[in-house]
Structure formats: C-alpha cells, structure tokens
Amino acid sequence: MTEDYEVEFIERGDRHARFLVRGVTPAFANGIRRAIIADVPTLSIDTVRMVENSSVMFDEQLGLRLGLVPLTTPLGEFEEGDTVTLSLDVSGPSTAYSGDLVSSDGMVQPADDNIPIIDLKDDQRLELEADAVLSTGKDHAKHQGGVAVGYRHLQRVEVLGDSDEYGEEETNILRGVIEEDGELVPTEEFDHDLTNRYPGKEIEVHDVPNAFVFDVDTDGSLTVDEIVTAAAASISDRADELEQAVQL
C-alpha cells in the first residue's frame, strides 16, 4: 500500500471493537476480513486421550466439544503445529465446565470458564488428557479467532431539501456509521432511523469511497487488537513471500 490510510476507533474493547479505516480498497478491506477469519492461528484442543469416560456421551462427542472451547493464545510464543497439554478430571454428580481444564502452560487458559462440557451423574466420571495445537481457521473452524467479522462502507447523508409537506413520514432504516461534518455517528444514536435525525427532510445516502467500518468480535482467544494486527502482518508476510517468489 503506497496510499496513506488511517484508522479511527468507534468502539474499542478486548473482545469487540468497531473501527473506521480510510484509504483502503474494497479488495484490501476484504483481505483483512478474510485474514482475521482464516489466517490468524489460535490454539484449540485437537487430540484427546481418554483415561475414563463413564458419562452419557461418546469420547468423540466430548472431543468435539473440547475442541470448541476457546483457549487464550499468546502471540509470538508458539509456532503453527506446537502443542500444549491440558487435563480434565471431574467426578459426578457435577458438571464438567471448560474452567475445569487444567493447563500445563500458564499463558494458555480457557477464555471462558462456564462452558458446560458434560453433566455427570452419580458414579460417572470423566478424566482425560488433551493436546491443544496452534493452527488456522483454514484448517478447522475451531481455530477461528474472529467471530462474525464484517465491514461496511462509511456513509454520508445528503440533504436534498424538505420532504413533501403532506407526504407520509415513513421510517428510513440505516444500520452502520454515518459521517456528519467529520463526526462519526453510529446509527444506534438515532435508533437506526434517519427520519429521527433528519425530520421532514428529503435525503440521499451515499457510500464514502474507500472508507470501511469494521466490526470485529473475537472468541476470547486473542484480543481484537491482537487479531487485527496479526491479520495485517499475515497479509504483509504473504505479499513479501510473493515478491520473493516472482523475482528473477
């Protein structure tokens, strides 16, 4: 990218953020989205060694559930393919939760502690050892760090004039973020209805070229900051790789 681009946050949290990026092409915006979903690796349980499973579910059913538990993934500490061992030992009557997983690495912990794995009755017991592996969403959806990642154009509203005096006032729903004299206004502020913001006006909505509002949610394995910077880095790495490959 030779063009200048800038980033402005509208909402910023650990697991959810909305930010505006200016000066990127639609293709690049989509590249970022896809990289967040498919190319940023996270740790997820991949192999399970059952010691005892007297619960009502089969080993492989529990294996699937364990794989879907997000694990915190420190950036830069692991290579793709590296593993971390976790163990679980719960006896009934009680419920085995994701928080009962004991990790061999302090940096790698279940991102949420209250995900039920299986309800155990009297005399039922679950004991297992599991290997979490670092891999990408391309390999298996359980490795996706981003949840419902998307973007839409920043929009601006042009007032054409007053609307028909006796015309019916209909709702005019718009979801996203609009730009108003340089100010960013999320449509939540006027209940997503432009007639609340511009009563009695005839308006037209335009996309602002090359300005995209990203909405990024993560499963907790990485923070939004981490996943977006890692996605951008992965695009950059692949671009470098391509440049090397096509050089004489």
Binding site: D112, I115, V147, D219
Partner: peptide, 10 residues
C-alpha cells in the same frame, strides 16, 4: 464469544 458460556445463567 461462545454461547455455552451463558447457558447456566440463562
């Protein structure tokens, strides 16, 4: 987020 996280409270 993982919806299972909210099941017990819900």
């Amino acid at each position: 987020m993982v919806v299972g996280e909210y099941w017990e409270e819900f």
